[in-house]
């Protein structure tokens, strides 16, 4: 295995009296999918937000490409090559695919002293990048609201990859998706990994994690329960760790093993 591109050591994050993270360590290597699992409120979103510059950790260190980093804003993290696709706020539905794709990074075409948004280039690249991910858009001016949930996630992922992400963080990209949409997104994640990008994949779903993950870290109430490599852990063990063991085991037996 290569050197980790990003290494988080003993990250703590307090919100007033709430200790959302109580010393979490985590790393991810280029070309690897590292899954972060955990129940609701475990602190997954908070954790990746410290990685992407949204929150400053209360304590702990972040090493990016071996150097210590202090991100002041998401912009800093993005400039370093850390891109995030958020659980709920991936896209603006009323805006076109192109406008969303380039939001914050609009290409400029100069006419004399005037600077315009280069829609011709933007539309073309958007179509190409989406096609690479296996989605053929009707037209780049189509509003994102008309896309399905999986297609929206794909736009967000394609955008991150296009803008040179070295680390791609996906916060529950599959949580609201149906079976086919999910498999599309998982296939996209695999494509991204093959390009040598480090992927942090957050999910509740053990099967989704096992489908693409190389390593698995489980968070519980702001603490890590450990990291396992692909093949070292069974789905059942992972499931138990996530739910804190017994309760789910009991529930599972009463439901006939369908959870």
């Amino acid at each position: 295995m290569t050197e980790p591109i990003i290494e988080m050591k003993n990250i703590e994050k307090h919100f007033g009296a709430v200790i959302a993270l109580g010393g979490v360590s985590f790393d991810v290597c280029p070309g690897e999918v590292h899954c972060l699992l955990g129940d609701n409120g475990a602190g997954k979103s908070t954790f990746i937000k410290t990685m992407s510059g949204v929150h400053k950790p209360t304590s702990g260190t972040i090493l990016f490409e071996g150097k210590e980093m202090n991100f002041e804003s998401p912009r800093d993290a993005m400039a370093a090559g850390i891109a995030t696709v958020y659980q709920d706020l991936a896209m603006i539905p009323l805006m076109s695919v192109t406008r969303n794709f380039w939001m914050g990074n609009e290409p400029i075409r100069k006419i004399g002293p005037l600077r315009f948004f280069d829609f011709e280039l933007a539309n073309r690249v958007t179509m190409e990048e989406m096609a690479k991910m296996g989605i053929n858009l009707r037209e780049p001016s189509q509003a994102v609201g008309t896309l399905s949930g999986g297609e929206r996630q794909t736009v967000a992922i394609a955008r991150a990859v296009h803008f040179g992400a070295k680390v791609l963080i996906l916060d529950e990209p599959t949580s609201a998706l149906g079976v086919r949409q999910t498999s599309n997104v998982l296939a996209t994640i695999d494509k991204v990994r093959k390009q040598g990008i480090a992927v942090v994949f957050i999910t509740h779903n053990v099967r989704h994690a096992l489908a693409v993950g190389d390593r698995f870290t489980v968070l519980n109430r702001g603490k890590t329960l450990g990291t396992a490599r692909r093949g070292e852990i069974t789905p059942e063990e992972l499931q138990d760790m996530m739910a804190g063991g017994q309760e789910l085991a009991q529930l599972e037996s009463s439901l006939g093993g369908t959870v």
Binding site: V54, S73, P74, R75, M78, T84, Y86, L89, A90, M91, I92, P93, L94, M95, R99, W102, M103, G104, N105, E106, I108, R115, F117
Partner: peptide, 20 residues
């Protein structure tokens, strides 16, 4: 570009902030 930011700011300020 600024026009795109106007749409983004009103469409979803938080999502817009996240992308800078």
């Amino acid at each position: 570009r600024f026009g795109n930011w106007i749409f983004a700011a009103g469409g979803d300020a938080q999502a817009a902030r996240y992308v800078g």
